[in-house]
Design a protein around this nucleic acid. Sequence first.
RNA 1: GCCCGGGUAGCACAAUUGGUAGUGCACCGACCUUGUAAGUCGGACAGUGCGGGUUCGAGUCCCGCCCCGGGCUCCA
Length: 641
Amino acid sequence: MPETKLKVELPDGSELELESGATGADAAAAIGPGLAKAALALKVDGELRDLSAPLAGGETIEIVTDRSPEALELVRHDAAHVLAEAVLDIWPGAKISIGPPIESGFYYDIEFPEGEAPGPEDLERIEERMREHISADEPFERRELPVAEAVEHFREEGQDYKVELIEDLQRDEGASTVTLYRNGAFEDLCRGPHGPSTGRIGAFKLTSLAGAYWRGDETRQMLTRVYGTAFLDRKALAAHLEMLEQAKERDHRKLGPELDLFRFRPESPGMPFWLPNGSVLLELMQEEVRGQLRKRGYREIRTPEVLDEELWHRSGHWDNYKENMFFVESEDRRFALKPMNCPGACLVFGSTRHSYRELPLRLAEFGKVFRNEREGVLHGLLRVRSFTQDDAHVYCTEDQVTGECVDIIEAIDELYARFGFDDVRLELSTRPQKSIGSAEQWERAEAALRGALESAGRDYQLNPGDGAFYGPKIDFHVTDALGRSWQLGTCQLDFFMPERFELGYTGADNAEHRPVMIHRALLGSMERFAGILIEHHGGRLPLWLAPVQATVLPVADRHNDAASEIAAELREAGLRVGIDERSESVGRKIRDAELAKAPYMLVVGDREQEAGVVSVRSHEGGDLGQMKPGELAARLAAESR
RNA sequence: GCCCGGGUAGCACAAUUGGUAGUGCACCGACCUUGUAAGUCGGACAGUGCGGGUUCGAGUCCCGCCCCGGGCUCCA
């Protein structure tokens, strides 16, 4: 007989002796009753398993509890199963497909019987049913089944999507068996693992309904996706819902019109109308970018928005981007609105001869581009049909690439910090399957970008195969005040375009050479960046970006003249100042200024008029007492830096 | 493009089983002359996204279109 004991190693390096045939749950119990109770799953040599999984001995195990980082994913996956269970209770004819945990919760894609698709009001009904299953604390039970039996099983139940999944698994991964998990009367095809029972789902909520194609393929069946979120306890759920509420409050689509920054009109879906305040904001952002351009030797160009269709054949956009372009016709000539600025920049470069002495030649353009995005994907300022890129194209030699990219990384760091984003993440994307150029060329290009990242001393994430077909790239991401991540700037190498446009420069050897082109954008889209800024700051932009930095509030009509003088003096000092001359009470004017998110309010009444001062109130600090206009201007100027 | 939900005054919302479209804020006018988040009174403003249909009668029901919102692999 083999030995009756087995040994496993624990994360702290100690050994645990167990009876042979012991499971993860036994291991947890052997360590302590508290842990046994808290245990959700097991990690065997770093791989997540069910608690009920038998141990072989010799492996390193870790008990996953509600405090483990994996716990959320586990519980959400459990919740997805309970969701499917509840749906099948209510709609026995429903066909379920997949139901994974996702970043913010979980979902399940389901085909409901014809004409019985649920509405938002049905979510509560499903939730109620789910709660019943959770309080019943149904254990998750795993079993393994040969593929043929599993297919038979799901075919009998009319679960066609499961049958398809299993058949695909067999074909693509050579699976001979699949695993099923049962909770209550419900059994689902699932890789697992799962928590011990449904009772461990601390708190959940179904959040929304959406359509989703089976396997994301728009030629296939449209399913109903039920979204939900789950947490280990009520408090965490409440915090998450609170965060969503906050995000709603900060939504730039709500704040933009409220603060008179921009608005949308049906006359031009996906193209914003910028109001005076919003124009000021864009202008300030642009000035900040221009500061970087001046500092780093970029020169600004402007190229046409409308260009002959032929150009887009030459640039390759016709083949790759035609569906997203707008076209216009005039006098039998077909033109396209530019979706990108690079061809224009290449025409500028190519229209004169260049010497190696001019390189790197850095041409920047605040270029307005037009992209005919499908209607359904438009989303406020974040996904539009026209926007302004703070674009630039650097023409240089291969040797110069690293230096240029370091410079771009620095520019982005400085710029993002200035706008209040400290957490910048870099990603390097390398050669994709479909690409042009030689292997050596790619190797050198990727090495140049890696070199830039290293000499800038930056950590980065590698995305192999995620580059553009014409060259590798570095993307820049920031995290906003609500913890959401946004991709902003980009720095891409391009071997393709200089080739296509037959660009050249005369080298020191008096021969013609092909320059390398770097596309780079710092903020990306000015409009999109403005939208992200608005959400990041909750509409309360930092003083230097506030379209109106201070509002002068005369106490009574007789103070209007004095107030105008103050306003004029502050404007003279370069501040953006408004004035509220309505015959309203001070309280009212303050309220309205606060709602307009004015950083400073300057009250002028008898006392101030006499002393030649203003009473200053800031949103943050409340009443700051009296100041002379000059003092105030200096203070605000200092704060704006 | 597709699925689900929505569209009533500038904005937020209301309108029994189909039965004369309302309220608040904003706006305009008058009064008040105001001291750190809403002063008082009065007035004007939509024919219900657009087009058709059913009906004695449609914001409510039906059809088509437009726009807005949530989504459309984070793959058992």
